[in-house]
Simulated scan of single mutants.
Amino acid sequence: MAERKRGTTIYSNSDIYNWLAEQKDTRLLDKFGLEFERRVLTDGRTTARMSISYVSPHTEGKWAGKERRYSCGTFPTDSIEGAHLQIEKMDALLTKGIDPNDERDGGRPRVGDGMGPEGRNGGRSSE
């Protein structure tokens, strides 16, 4: 399993609230590899999308080594501790050779899997 990028700090709720208020950096990375991405909502409130990058064990060919994102929720609606627990479960799946997004999605087709207008035909009809 490829080593992911990690920060040096484990952030608390107050650390994230302060970071959201500062309006400086748009991204923050913690010691677990959890990335916080600032989001400004239409009503002016700020939240942070929590996600993690990983390399899928199923990627091959031109997609080999390409990073995927696994969403762990939105701060403050979802907890940082809950996101860290999701990362532990995700790491266990990756160790078994299972892609966490595929496991969570239950095998439903994704864009580019040949389903819908974005599929193999690029939106063109075969007629």
Rank of each mutant, 00 (worst) to 15 (best):
R110H: 15
G73L: 01
S79V: 00
E81Q: 15
V111S: 11
G106Y: 00
G116I: 03
E67C: 05
M115G: 09
D78M: 06
G114K: 06
R69H: 13
H84C: 06
L93R: 03
S71W: 13
G82N: 05
P109C: 02
D91G: 01
N101G: 10
K89Q: 15
T74Q: 06
G114C: 05
I80E: 07
A83W: 01
T74I: 06
M115K: 11
L93K: 06
E81A: 14
D78E: 09
D78T: 04
G114I: 03
V111K: 11
R68W: 15
G82V: 02
M115D: 14
E67V: 04
T74R: 01
N101Y: 09
R69S: 14
T77M: 04
K89Y: 07
D105V: 07
G112R: 10
M115H: 12
D78G: 02
K89V: 07
F75I: 06
G82A: 03
R108L: 12
D78P: 03
T95M: 12
C72Y: 12
S71F: 14
G97Y: 04
G73F: 04
D78W: 09
Y70L: 15
G73Y: 03
D91N: 14
V111R: 15
H84E: 05
E88S: 09
G97E: 08
D78A: 08
L85M: 11
G82R: 01
S71D: 13
T74S: 03
I80V: 10
H84V: 00
E81L: 10
R69E: 15
I80P: 01
K96R: 14
R110W: 12
P76C: 01
L85T: 14
D102G: 13
G73M: 04
M90Y: 11
L93Q: 06
T77P: 00
M90K: 07
N101S: 07
L85R: 15
M90E: 10
D102A: 14
E88R: 14
I98T: 11
R69T: 14
Q86T: 03
R104L: 12
E81M: 08
Y70C: 09
D99L: 02
L94V: 04
A83F: 00
I87F: 06
M115S: 12
H84N: 12
N101W: 00
R68P: 09
A83Y: 00
G107H: 02
G107N: 05
S79I: 00
L93V: 01
T95F: 04
L85E: 12
D99F: 02
K96N: 11
R68G: 07
R108K: 15
K89R: 13
L93F: 00
A92Q: 08
G97R: 00
R68H: 13
D99W: 03
D105Q: 08
R110I: 08
R69G: 08
K89F: 06
D99V: 06
